[in-house]
Design a protein around this nucleic acid. Sequence first.
DNA 1: ACAAAGATCCGT
DNA 2: CGGATCTTTGTA
Length: 174
Amino acid sequence: MAGQRRQNRILSPDFFKSDALELAPKLIGKYLVREYEGNIFRSIINEVEAYMGEEDLACHASKGRTPRTEVMYREGGHIYIYLIYGMYYMLNIVTGEKDHPQAILIRGTQEVSGPGRLTKFYHIDKSLNTKLLLPETGLWLEESNIELKYKTTPRIGVAYAKEWALKPWRYVAY
DNA sequence: ACAAAGATCCGT
DNA sequence: CGGATCTTTGTA
């Protein structure tokens, strides 16, 4: 039909095989896309945080390989979701090579702020955990032409992580 | 088997 | 600033 919307370029799982610190700023301005029960949700990511390996005390992989963290040891492009405070699902994208546990927490889009509110809004729950970021999964990212300015700050809610809590690994558009 | 803590959010 | 609410993990 005339006037059909151009399909945005889908970011393949391979896109996420580099380091979280390199990828995190690149995710600012990308589309997060969710297909759920026939509805498409598409919004621009404007806040993320990087979690970097076993040394990073804020990273769940600092506990080593456990049933929960196993997915972080897979190659980039996998989805890591966990429940926090008994109520809120956190959406993470695994990054890097196999056996280099890292992830990027998606904290907000232009539609909805806050990682717990975000997953609720987009109907994202643990059923997506360990899946790949692909259209057939119902959750994926797309390229955009939007260039957002961003700043870095320390990560939120990780005061327990000693000196790692000070790393400026939160990226937020302004 | 049990206790403690947690990458949050909301209402007071 | 405290409560909600439950999974994950460490310890015994």
